[in-house]
């Protein structure tokens, strides 16, 4: 299907060149490699949220729950199960994905604000579990005592533990795999059924789509993707804390998606980049960095409701 919202090939090439060369150019503009990894991880989280928000038309306001579960799951797996980065990431992803699938089944009949409220409630439940269950999670201090392990792939030994650039490329490879899968899904008949639900639920139903079932699958997939991002976040920081589950992070992810452009596949990544960079630079100047984000957000929503990428698109059409 020739999609109305497909990314121009030149933009696609630009995105991948920028990401692939990030460790080389980030330093030149005053950044650092870990900042690049942070953009990728939060960008993937925002894109996972946007799989629901932008492409299924369902707003989850508690998606940090699954992000944080992925982070804790990965950290706990490294700490208690095995000193293997891929295994830990897999277990973290499964934890968030499975809980998301189970709890998601209970909210697919709700819509709009009611859907959003239940997702916030889920998020807060997990937040308090992480906050209170000191013995397992380290409570308020967060989960420590684990660190990402070097990769052993056949004869190769890749030291993503100590080498920040190697870790960046590991994150980039994970990011690429996840977004490729996401893009594939969105182009498939299943992805089209989600667009149909976003566009017009009644029409979708009367085309023969069991709307609730499809929303449930989309929700579960979104949880899997964002748990994976959460796992990467735990690896990035060698740390997980209750804020990874908190609804303020959920809100930040929504801001990233809307800021960048929730109808565009790459919009949330741009939103995450703007968010993370502003957070990094402006917070070194003033503690009020959030008000800059807030102002930018308000301006975009008021004047460019299709987000930053939406502006670019309008230009390119003109």
């Amino acid at each position: 299907m020739k999609e109305s919202g497909r990314t121009h090939p030149a933009v696609l090439v630009a995105i991948w060149v920028l990401l692939l060369l990030a460790p080389y150019w980030l330093g030149l503009v005053g950044g650092y490699t870990a900042l690049g990894a942070r953009v990728l991880v939060l960008g993937l989280a925002a894109m996972s949220l946007n799989f629901l928000l932008g492409f299924t038309g369902v707003l989850s306001f508690g998606h940090a729950a699954w992000f944080g579960l992925g982070a804790y799951g990965t950290g706990l797996a490294l700490k208690w199960v095995a000193a293997s980065t891929p295994l830990a990431l897999l277990l973290g992803t499964l934890l968030g994905g499975a809980l998301g699938a189970v709890l998601g089944a209970m909210l697919v009949r709700r819509r709009g604000i009611y859907f959003a409220m239940v997702t916030i409630a889920y998020g807060q439940v997990f937040y308090y579990i992480a906050y209170r269950w000191n013995a397992l999670t380290g409570g308020d201090d967060g989960l420590r005592g684990f660190s990402r392990q070097p990769l052993e792939i056949g004869p190769w030994h890749i030291d993503i533990a100590a080498n920040g650039v190697a870790f960046y490329y590991f994150v980039l490879a994970c990011f690429a795999a996840a977004v490729a899968l996401m893009a594939l899904l969105l182009r498939s008949p299943f992805g089209h059924s989600l667009l149909a639900i976003r566009e017009n639920e009644r029409r979708a139903r009367f085309l023969g789509i069991p709307v609730e079932f499809h929303i449930w699958i989309a929700f579960a997939l979104s949880c899997v993707f964002i748990s994976f991002a959460g796992g990467l976040y735990a690896l990035l920081n060698n740390f997980a804390d209750p804020n990874n589950l908190h609804y303020s992070l959920s809100g930040d992810l929504v801001i990233m998606a809307v800021l960048g452009g929730m109808r565009r596949f790459w919009g949330p990544l741009l939103g995450a980049a703007v968010f993370v960079v502003l957070q990094d630079y402006v917070s070194s100047l003033t503690t009020n960095w959030m008000s800059f984000i807030g102002l930018l957000f308000v301006a975009v929503v008021l004047f460019f409701p299709r987000g930053l990428l939406g502006i670019a698109r309008r230009r390119s059409l003109a």
Partner: peptide, 14 residues
């Protein structure tokens, strides 16, 4: 009842 922000061909394709 249609899918307003998709093209006509996409509406039929789905």
């Amino acid at each position: 009842e249609i899918f307003p922000e998709l093209t006509l061909a996409e509406n039929l394709r789905i």
